[in-house]
């Protein structure tokens, strides 16, 4: 980094131009969503960059058409619980794979990897039949329990755990720490940012899930917010204003969590890129 040659100085301008363009591409839809959410019906299809007449009607309609508060609470509960349990199970799995070499470990790892490739549609009916037989329809258990393990998280964390220096683990063991302590006192604090970034991805996936809540829940009051968004879309027309208002509300929690954990995410993406 220190040897700042001339070539290195010319590059950032071009790089920044590209990054600014990409940044614009990423931010513009978000901006357009918020812009449309404040436009009255008559302006929804106009291309003006700001509403000529600002209105909160769309938010009012969106809020009153579906039990928004209930659904947001449900979404938050499901996403947090699901993320928490997925992280917990995958940390244990990743630790087991790194800490011990046991017979069949690569087979199990391969199997876990393969389940990641199975599309949800293939397993949704068997899952649903099972959930129904437990009487878990329309319940938090039904929404969360089938998703407490994530193959994606196991694979990601295994790679992260592998990079953790073995010598440190051995040293901790020599100091008399149990495996449980090694995991939570030695490894976990050092890999916190990587785990947090996987957590964010898991949270977003859980938050955005539509089909499973659609199957498991019946009433809007028991469902997550993604099912509520569908209320504003139909085969004949979309109510763009309320839809954009509802989508804005629905994306706020994810944005807030992203802002809180921003540092960790960027850290881990950078590390992931370097590896």
């Amino acid at each position: 980094m220190g040897n700042g040659t001339r070539g290195f100085r010319a590059a950032p301008a071009g790089k920044h131009a590209v990054l600014i363009a990409l940044g614009f591409l990423a931010v513009f839809p978000l901006y357009w969503m918020i812009n449309t959410s404040f436009k009255p019906d008559t302006e929804v299809f106009s291309s003006s960059l700001l509403p000529r007449h600002w209105t909160f009607d769309n938010y009012r309609t969106a809020w009153n058409s579906v039990p928004m508060a209930r659904m947001l609470t449900n979404s938050l509960a499901v996403a947090l619980l699901q993320t928490g349990t997925q992280l917990f199970t995958s940390i244990l799995a990743a630790f087991a794979f790194t800490r011990w070499t046991f017979k069949g470990s690569s087979l199990i790892y391969g199997l876990i990897g393969l389940t990641w490739l199975v599309p949800f549609q293939v397993i949704m009916i068997p899952n649903y039949v099972m959930i129904s037989s437990f009487g878990w329809r329309d319940s938090l258990m039904g929404l969360v329990v089938p998703n407490i393990a994530s193959a994606f998280a196991v694979l990601q964390l295994f790679n992260t755990f592998k990079s953790f220096p073995r010598a440190l683990i051995e040293a901790a063991r020599l100091d008399g720490a149990s495996d449980w302590k090694v995991l939570w006192r030695t490894i976990f604090p050092n890999l916190r940012s990587a785990i947090a970034s996987i957590g964010i991805l898991l949270f977003i996936t859980a938050w955005n899930d539509y089909f499973w809540p659609l199957l498991v829940t019946t009433k809007m009051e028991h469902s997550t917010i993604q099912k509520g968004l569908q209320m504003f879309m139909s085969s004949e027309m979309n109510l763009w204003g309320p839809l954009m208002a509802a989508t804005t509300i629905a994306s706020l929690p994810v944005l807030v969590i992203y802002l809180i954990l921003q540092r960790q995410i960027i850290d881990s993406f950078v590390k992931g890129g370097l590896r």
Binding site: S106, G110, L111, G113, L114, V118, I123
Partner: peptide, 28 residues
């Protein structure tokens, strides 16, 4: 490692295929 992984994968595919068939058969 690589050989083991390959063998593992192959076995995995097989088991998975079996599992899926069983699952599908069951739903039908």
């Amino acid at each position: 490692m690589s050989l083991a992984t390959k063998r593992g994968l192959a076995a995995g595919v097989l088991t998975l295929a079996m599992l899926t068939t069983v699952a599908c058969g069951k739903t039908e």
